[in-house]
């Protein structure tokens, strides 16, 4: 497990030295500035505009990093053959995979936290006052990070058995469908055959429910988040990631490197 930590720190270092990451941070700052300007022209709804725009930007940037870098975590190493020298050392393949996952999730934590702080400062600047409910912004950012961890796990799984392009498409596909899991679950029975109903219900429980992580409206109106939801989302992410990563490990452990 210690070796997974060494791999994770190196993955984090790679991301920090990657100029794309700095560009995305710069983009985040631009988005924050835009939200402040938008807030100034939207009389009375500054908070809603800033929080919605800010959280959307954090989510979008995080998703781009999670999908593109997540898919490249293993595939890039295989293409460039950088992992040959590493896997010939006393490193188990699961340690390598967990390390890569941990490194990107750590990067996302730092990135998301920095952007979350930027959003909070923008909010303070616009409101000039502070109330307890404003802290919901941080919970919303935390939920975005949980969601991104799940996306990274999925990207890693797909990249273990398919090409990078297909892995990006699969990850994006699962993410988009995952946003509508609730709708799948509540699909009216009259419009489908019983078999199809059972299938969509089964699918809705199999797919990750990304809608659970969206508390943008609560954050925009400074409503407090129930502690139960925080625990529930944390556990959901941990268990789902564990299952997906186990699948990725099973595939990668048997994979012949080119």
């Amino acid at each position: 497990m210690k070796r997974a930590g060494v791999v994770a720190l190196n993955t984090f270092r790679e991301a920090v030295r990657d100029r794309v990451l700095y560009n995305l941070l710069f983009f985040a700052l631009v988005m924050m500035a835009a939200s402040i300007i938008a807030g100034q022209i939207s009389i009375g709804i500054e908070q809603t505009v800033i929080v919605t725009l800010g959280l959307s930007a954090i989510s979008l940037i995080g998703l781009l990093i999670s999908v593109f870098i997540g898919v490249g975590l293993v595939s890039k190493e295989m293409d460039k053959r950088t992992l040959y020298a590493l896997l010939a050392k006393p490193v188990r393949r699961w340690e390598f995979l967990l390390g890569k996952f941990g490194g990107l999730v750590l990067t996302l934590a730092v990135n998301t936290a920095a952007m979350g702080l930027g959003l909070f400062l923008a909010l303070m600047y616009a409101k000039q006052t502070l109330e307890r409910g404003d802290a919901t912004v941080f919970v919303a950012v935390y939920f975005i990070w949980l969601k991104l961890a799940l996306v990274v796990a999925l990207a890693l799984l797909f990249s273990c058995f398919t090409t990078p392009l297909l892995a990006i498409l699969f990850t994006a596909g699962v993410y988009i469908v995952g946003l509508y899991v609730q709708e799948l679950r509540n699909m009216p029975m009259q419009v489908m055959s019983p078999g199809m109903t059972a299938f969509t219900k089964w699918l809705s429980y199999l797919l990750p429910n990304f809608e659970n992580f969206n508390i943008m409206a609560m954050a925009a109106h400074s409503r407090q988040v129930p502690g139960k939801l925080i625990v529930q989302n944390t556990l959901y992410t941990a268990i789902y990631c564990a299952i997906v990563l186990t699948g990725a490990i099973l595939v990668f452990s048997r994979r012949n490197l080119k």
Binding site: N10, R13, E14, R17, K80, R81, T82, Y84, A85, A88
Partner: peptide
């Protein structure tokens, strides 16, 4: 065991 891969390529950011 020590191993040198053919045409080695390492993390170029290091």
């Amino acid at each position: 065991v020590g191993y040198l891969p053919e045409q080695p390529f390492f993390y170029d950011y290091l």
